[in-house]
């Protein structure tokens, strides 16, 4: 059986790992290559590097970090942030990434998803989404690190993403991100039910049981967290042990 994945995310700025709370109050915590190696030792199923400032400051992705990591860590690597063109995707994959995650750029230019999938294959195109609940009760998609509401309905967007050929969705809830009260289960469930591609839950994990809860209450394929793992509040291995104890299939 396919195992549920636990994915630590390394938010990176200027080659250093950072983590913001609701994208504000960034503080540095370390070297991304060393962090990736540590997560690999802990049993991470995949590692995500996200250049947190790239989409609004126009920074490119940190290809050297990816290159160094790919020489030492033999689990899938995903890189997001600042990927605007097919050439950016090509460069990132050639540096050793297995997937790219496109977010703001995909909203502004959906053709990037189709072109990326056609040229490199759906399997390496993950679409990252930041979404927030509206007063009307639906969710809308935000860009530029959660700063700009595109007034684009989340469920319309995820269906479009799937049709364009994306291989995966990484769904971050702006409402729960950094709050540590658990993943946004209603939003997650709505998205998982709307598409037939893997969905990664992101934003809100604060305790051990939040991971198992996401897998028990929705059919999401993976769960991602950043600060929780950075600040050593939990290890990947502890999360997997808890899941296993609750009969959720995870990689040993």
């Amino acid at each position: 059986m396919l195992a549920k994945r636990i994915i630590p995310c390394l938010d990176v700025r200027d080659g250093k790992v950072v983590k913001g709370v609701n994208f504000e109050g960034i503080r540095e915590v370390g070297d991304p290559v060393a962090c990736a190696e540590e997560y690999n030792r802990q049993g991470a199923d995949e590692i995500v590097f996200y250049d947190i400032t790239a989409s609004h400051e126009g920074r490119g992705v940190m290809l050297d970090v990816v290159r160094e990591t790919a020489k030492k860590v033999f689990v899938p690597l995903t890189v997001g942030g600042g990927i605007k063109t097919v050439d950016d995707i090509r460069e990132t994959l050639r540096a050793g990434a297995d997937k790219v995650s496109v977010n703001s750029q995909a909203v502004q230019n959906p053709q990037l998803i189709r072109d990326g999938a056609d040229i490199f294959g759906s399997q390496c195109i993950c679409v990252g989404i930041d979404a927030k609940k509206t007063s009307a009760g639906n969710w809308t998609v935000y860009i530029n690190g959660g700063r700009i509401d595109m007034h684009l309905d989340l469920l319309d967007w995820v269906k479009q993403i799937e049709q364009l050929g994306a291989g995966e969705i990484c769904l971050n809830s702006i409402d729960t991100d950094g709050v540590k009260q658990g993943f946004d289960l209603p939003m997650l469930k709505a998205v998982v039910d709307a598409v037939n591609i893997p969905v990664i839950a992101s934003g809100g994990a604060g305790k051990l049981e939040h991971f198992a809860e996401a897998f028990q209450k929705t059919d999401c394929s993976a769960a991602l967290a950043a600060s929780l793992f950075h600040f050593k509040e939990l290890t990947v291995n502890e999360v997997k042990t808890d899941c296993r104890n609750k009969n959720i299939i995870v990689r040993t």
């Binding site: 059986m1 396919l2 195992a3 199923d45 291989g167 037939n196 591609i197 893997p198």
Partner: peptide, 13 residues
């Protein structure tokens, strides 16, 4: 496909 998520992506035993 039926009700499977495609691609088959992740770790399997």
């Amino acid at each position: 496909a039926s009700d499977l998520i495609i691609p088959h992506m992740g770790w399997n035993k």
